[in-house]
Amino acid sequence: MKDTKGGPPGGYQVLVVEDEPQVRRFLRVTLRVNGYRVAEATSGVEAMAFAESRRPDLIVLDLGLPDVDGVEVVAKLRAWFQGPIVVVSARHQENEKVRALDAGADDYLTKPFGTSELLARLRVALRHDTRKAGDPEQGVFQAGGLRVDLDRHEVSVKGRAVKLTPLEYRLLTTLIRHAGKVVTSRQLLREVWGEAHLEEAHYLRVYMSVLRRKLEDDPTRPRMLLTEQSVGYRLRVDRD
């Protein structure tokens, strides 16, 4: 446990909002062992109060809270809280998940989840704290054989140049901007197609399918452009 907000992940303070004591216990142990400082809240109200007074770096929030709707907590936190929020949901809460993500959560975990998955999500969320970094659309993005030169608008897979239409390129760069994180369909539609097309998810699916055919070795066994069914898409980054 370090007290200074030093190099990642040491010293980051995580607020765990979870009403189940057993889950809290396991999260506490895992996170401490991996160098995070852990604070706990058992209800939405408590979480809001704590977040306001102590300003954690990251919030892990269970959506099934006893007092308030978890999505509401996300929306309220987002009004002023800058750090990443990772929501935890039970299965069969696809809608909740998507609502939480659209309300401003950065990523999600589905119970039951393993430690490695949890830590990977937190790492990505912290790295991509886009609200702070601003993440300029420049430089070179590289992951799993994919290379995208954001300045020269060039895409290649394993050294082989790939031609993309402007729309496909925009879709890819949007995913790159959120690399490693889930991006909801609405978010992608908004950023690539614009506000008017938020309900037309099948366009997005068709383009993702085309993009996969161009970039993946085997589009039916995707390595990079992963589908999170009925939530959105995730561009897989190495080691995450």
């Binding site: 699916r205 399918s209 589009p219 039916t220 995707p222 589908t227 069914q229």
Partner: peptide, 10 residues
């Protein structure tokens, strides 16, 4: 909803 079959298989 409308889905490309390969995406679901993927």
């Amino acid at each position: 909803e409308w889905h490309p079959p390969d995406e679901v298989i993927g």
